[in-house]
Design a protein around this nucleic acid. Structure first.
Length: 420
RNA sequence: GCCCCCAUCGACUAGCGGCCCAGGUCACAGCCCUUUCAAGGCUGCAGCGCGGGUUCGAAUCCCGCUGGGGGCACCA
């Protein structure tokens, strides 16, 4: 039987990073097996912002490259079918009415168990499972009825979901049995925790996918990082392309223990991906990102700054601060300046020909020498004058790219500032 | 309160009885490189929660404890 899995978020808000991880595992599992990955919106509880949240979920998945098969389905669409099935269970004596709602009968003795694909055998005593309501008195199905029912209708073969669903599983298995449906394979993945050891939630920093996007993370990096949160290929492999992830992913190597989300490692990994990009691809990513930030900077100039910044940035959102001086004026802190050095620099660069990196470096080095200053000491005031700060891309290349006119202009302006 | 799940360096993890006085990655520290910051190279710091078993032999198996997480709705 071909593999068929689903990711079933509820449309209550943006896509949570823990949810994304669940989606990713489902997706990797399906793609590895050549099966299908479906997106189902569990809107059993009529939400107010369904449309908006659904769009956002779809966009987040798309951005990450997690494509789904077939149309997006909505649980609410199965309301009638749920009612029909509930009535059937009633007729078959497997359910009963209770104050207008319908409850399913659960066995009082014995156990309900399953062989969890990540945890192994799990058993729950039946006397701890109550007769749950499957249809509310207003006719709407409850989650624990609608979800397994739709899994059955959709022919879902594997249910891969978060740890928090473990206690729902025995209930859903009983529902499925009553329905006469086949029981899918269940796999419960450990939860994602925040730095404080608590389950990740909106309280703990950037947990929505959107936020990672705004902070300049690459989807490839996020996917790679997330894949390693609870799954591993072997004892030493860390960086894996999407294709490698797909071909290597198996549910057997997924861990059942909770994992703490580590921003520092994600950043490091993002840097790895950023550095691996070709210069044109890097420029394209940067331009797109800047556009999303509302910064309409000259794409050609952005492209030319790439060689100067690529190895330096670990996140795209650092670019404006780091390379913004190419696009807008600067106001350096006077404390970083030195009028004598700046005046000398202006003179040295004024009629330099050609105005190129190598010549610039040569000129400034001999300037340092004649002023009897260590190179680093002499360059810092110049750096501040040119870039506005004491942390910047390589000075000589920056000067070449900025051009003679602007360079001299900034040198003069800074020299004036320094005198006060 | 009841039920379920989990437990290796600060973090993510490898380990499925001897290959482990525990390996990799991030973080951290030191050194090298160096025009700042990064990146890179090298070195280092650091862990099997506790107590009982089983076994010739346990991080690996069993039991208990402790700790953490999740669940017990006409929420999903």
């Amino acid at each position: 039987m071909p593999v068929k899995v689903r990711f079933a978020p509820s449309p209550t808000g943006f896509l949570h990073i823990g949810g994304v991880r669940t989606a990713l595992f489902n997706w990797l599992f399906a793609r590895h097996a050549g099966g299908e990955f479906h997106l189902r919106i569990e809107n059993t509880d009529t939400g107010r912002e369904v449309a908006e949240a659904t769009d956002q979920i779809k966009e987040s998945l798309s951005w990450l490259g997690l494509d789904w098969d077939g149309p997006v389905t909505f649980q609410l669409d199965q309301t009638e079918r749920c009612q029909v099935e509930a009535r059937r269970l009633l007729e078959e004596g497997k359910a009963y009415e209770d104050e207008g709602a319908i409850r399913i009968k659960m066995p009082d003795e014995g156990v309900t168990g399953w062989d969890d694909a990540v945890r192994g055998p799990v058993e729950v005593a039946n006397d701890t499972i109550e007769d749950l309501i499957i249809l509310r008195s207003d006719g709407r199905p409850t989650y624990n009825f609608a979800s397994p029912l739709e899994d059955w209708l959709d022919g879902i073969t594997h249910v891969i979901r978060g740890d928090d669903h473990v206690s729902n599983t025995p209930k859903q298995i009983r529902v499925l049995e009553a329905l006469g449906a086949e029981i899918p394979v269940y796999a419960h993945v450990g939860n994602v925790l925040g730095l404080d050891g608590k389950k990740l939630s909106k309280r703990h920093g950037a947990v929505g996918v959107d936020e990672f996007r705004r902070e300049g993370y690459l989807p490839e990096a996020l996917v790679n990082y997330l894949a390693l949160l609870g799954w591993s290929y072997d004892d030493k492999t860390t960086i894996m392309s999407r294709e490698e992830l797909i071909s290597r992913f198996t549910i057997e190597r997924v861990a059942g223990s909770p994992a703490t989300f580590d921003y520092e490692k994600l950043e490091w990994m993002n840097g790895v991906y950023l550095r691996e990009l070709g210069e044109d691809a890097y420029a394209a990513a940067l331009t797109t990102f800047l556009g999303e930030q509302g910064l309409d900077w000259d794409a050609d100039l952005v492209r030319r700054t790439v060689p100067l910044v690529q190895v330096k940035l670990v996140r795209l959102d650092r670019y404006p601060e780091y390379a913004g001086f190419f696009f807008r004026d600067v106001t350096p802190d006077p404390k970083l300046l030195d009028a004598r050095v700046l005046a000398a620099a202006e003179e040295a660069l004024n009629k330099l020909d050609p105005f190129e990196t190598e010549a610039i470096e040569q000129a400034l080095r001999s300037l340092a020498e004649s002023l009897e200053l260590k190179p680093g000491k002499a360059f810092q005031p110049i750096r501040a004058a040119i870039t506005g700060t004491n942390v910047s891309p390589s000075l000589f290349e920056s000067i070449e790219l900025l051009g003679r006119e602007k360079t001299l202009q900034r040198l003069r302006a800074a020299a004036a500032l320094a005198k006060d």
